[in-house]
Amino acid sequence: MKSAVLVFPGINRERDMARALRLVSGREPAMVWHAETSLPEGTDLVVVPGGFSYGDYLRCGAIAARSPVMDAVRAFASRGGLVLGVCNGFQILCESGLLPGILMRNARLKFICHDVHLRVERSDTPFTRGYNAGQVIRVPVAHGEGNYAADEETIRRLEGEGRVLYRYCSPSGEIGDTHNINGAAQSIAGIINERGNVLGMMPHPENHVEGIMGCTDGRGLFAGLVAHLERAA
């Protein structure tokens, strides 16, 4: 799997992401500066990492979403290339129009930084094939604006088309207000685009890929992508 990690001013999770990609895929990802107008030849996966691009000025991800490299990412996605956005990366994908909706201020206004449980809603996508449908995984979150919102019609379509891949839940997989950490519509933690090749999610699977972190539940996401690409090749 040849991956490319985008780097914007103010991003701070790009090295965690690169480390996870290297550990799971065995290949060093390319780091791609936001001013680039093209992606490295043969890229299989583009990752938009977390952090605080442009200091979250204006709206989270708004300025990064309009940088030159995003035109290349849009073209890559329209050819069916895989794109993963985590945390600020999810916000950037929403602002760039690659995913619908927006991430609003957390309902209780607090920055949330701890492990959460996610229910994997289906396993038949490149982003979830490393898991079983209904499986509960534990990964960290660290965000102040993760409250997913969209108009009613968009939410209906996301649900109707099975495009919610990850949802906040209890350790045993129940969905409800008490487990919906940031007030997101339908407890949404991660969604895919209509074509199924772009995933945005608030939690950080890249931080739970090695034993030293005390949990390796995030590994399945990356291992699933590697398996998907090997099968496609």
Partner: peptide, 9 residues
């Protein structure tokens, strides 16, 4: 349209 507002919200 291009930057200052996100017309979704």
């Amino acid at each position: 349209d291009k930057l200052l507002a996100n017309t979704v919200i």
